[in-house]
Amino acid sequence: MNAVFSWIAACLSAGADALGRPLLAPLGVLPGWLSATLVAAATGVILLIAFKYTSNQRSIKRVRDDLDANLLALKLFKDSTAVTLRSQGRLFVGGFRLMLLALVPMLVMALPVTLLLGQLALWYQSRPLRVGEQAVLTLALGGDAKAPWPHVRLRPSNAVQVELGPVRVRSKRELCWTLKPRAAGLHRLTFDVDGRPVDKQLAVGDGLMRVSALRPGWDWEEILLNPAEAPFRPGAAVRSIAVAFPTRSSWTSGTDSWLIYWFVVSMAAALVFRRALGVKV
């Protein structure tokens, strides 16, 4: 099952990346707070429109009205305990019906939103390394614990200096290097694994850049959330390569907080445009 999902995820990620790379390129020239706000607001509105056309708006309105009516009934007819209990029961039923009605659009949108978040994570989840700043690179090998270790070598590069490594973590079948970039830019690190070349991106610079922290293995969830580099196929000598990029510190476009900010702003934008777009939520 994972193989099929991973294959689908790889195709979708590649497509999303092909679209996302040029479309989101302007983020690199805008201040982080502005780009995060614009992207969140725009996607909020787009997703709201998508919700309008993927949900049963008439039923949602009916259920919403019913919920409102039952809430008002609690206030208006509070003299009667039986009526109160009935209204409470109907609120429960209404809540459940609303959840069911949200299910279809939720499922329809889950995938595009995941792809979008994967693209946005490239920009906001980590900060690129600065010149001279150390970072640990971890290459995880494929195969089980008893499998022989391949010969792995990081090709020398003018862009990075190897400070330490490789260090072998036998229990995890991992090799680690400590790197120190020498020049800004989007570099490509190349490893020789039993004589075969394997690449990994490394972003070095000061501003906003697409940062690929992980070149994923053949796992659909990892593939969806790390779309910038092609995943390693099953049976490959390397399972994944990760670089421990530093976290970005910002309320609006910092590590992890960007997601909260995106959530809040997209919700707010949807709330503002909800009536104008005639969407029942």
């Binding site: 949900s55 029961g89 429960f92 809540g95 609303l98 949108m109 939103v113 978040l117 997601l259 949807a270």
Partner: peptide
């Protein structure tokens, strides 16, 4: 995977209904 504001509101609404009840 956050599923967008529409479904988000709907889900939030359903939880609000549960909470109110």
């Amino acid at each position: 995977a956050y599923v967008g504001p529409g479904a988000g509101f709907a889900l939030a609404g359903s939880f609000m209904a549960f909470f109110a009840a």
